[in-house]
Amino acid sequence: MRQPTFLRIGLKKRGAFVKLRLRWDKSPLTCAAVVRRLPVASQVWHAKWANCEIYTLVPVLDETFSPEWTSAYPAPGDLMYLPIGQTNIKPLGAPELPTQNGLIDFAYFYDRGSNLLNGPTGAHTGNIIATASDPLAVEEFAETCADVWFAGAVGEQLVLDVTD
């Protein structure tokens, strides 16, 4: 399988995207699993507990989670792969998703002060799979991410795809 260097994450309706570097050097198994699934386009939500995070949920297909480059304190521009077990803890209004194998939370952190310690099930870690390639672009995209919090996420999709 080809190992692409970059992916882009964006908010489709708002027409805003940012380019991230896939971290094959730190999370090779997770990067491979994610790249096999791309493209992804699904309803976006803004985090309640993790602060400056937008995310989407997708069902686990055949992926097996292996801790690699784990963190509970993501930095601005980090994209994380967070496994969620068979649970009913989903955002209000979430579509019915097959959860028999669990869910994957693709979580993008757009500003400082985020952590994964205070959720309803306690501390949660996941693998960082991509990081900012341009800090100024992350800051610009952060304004659009914050708009999901202030203006709402209805009808907005989080998009992940390979890019040059």
Rank of each mutant, 00 (worst) to 15 (best):
R2F: 13
R2Y: 12
R2T: 14
R2Q: 15
R2M: 15
Q3Y: 03
Q3D: 07
Q3L: 07
P4N: 11
P4M: 02
P4Y: 12
P4A: 08
P4G: 13
T5V: 06
T5F: 02
T5Q: 11
F6K: 09
F6T: 08
L7D: 03
L7M: 15
I9G: 04
G10M: 12
G10L: 11
G10D: 13
G10I: 12
G10C: 14
G10H: 14
L11M: 07
L11R: 06
L11S: 12
L11A: 03
K12L: 06
K12T: 07
K13T: 03
K13P: 00
K13L: 03
R14S: 11
R14I: 01
R14Q: 09
R14T: 11
G15P: 08
A16H: 09
A16P: 10
F17M: 10
F17W: 11
F17Q: 09
V18D: 01
V18W: 01
V18N: 04
V18Y: 04
V18E: 05
K19I: 10
R21Y: 04
L22N: 08
L22A: 08
L22E: 06
R23K: 06
R23P: 00
W24P: 13
D25F: 14
K26N: 06
K26C: 11
S27G: 15
S27I: 15
P28H: 15
L29W: 06
L29C: 05
T30Y: 10
T30F: 09
T30P: 13
T30K: 06
T30D: 11
C31H: 14
A32H: 00
A32V: 00
A33G: 09
A33Y: 05
V34P: 00
V34I: 10
V34M: 12
V34S: 02
V35C: 06
R36H: 01
R36F: 00
R36C: 00
R37T: 08
R37S: 10
R37G: 02
P39Q: 08
P39H: 08
P39Y: 05
P39T: 07
P39M: 02
P39E: 11
P39C: 01
V40K: 01
V40P: 00
A41W: 01
A41L: 02
A41V: 05
S42A: 07
S42F: 07
Q43C: 01
Q43L: 06
V44E: 08
V44A: 09
W45Y: 15
W45D: 02
W45C: 04
W45R: 05
H46L: 04
H46P: 08
A47C: 11
A47N: 10
K48N: 14
K48S: 14
K48W: 14
K48Y: 15
K48L: 13
K48D: 13
W49Y: 14
W49P: 01
W49F: 14
A50Y: 11
A50G: 02
A50E: 04
N51F: 11
N51H: 09
N51P: 00
C52Y: 13
E53W: 06
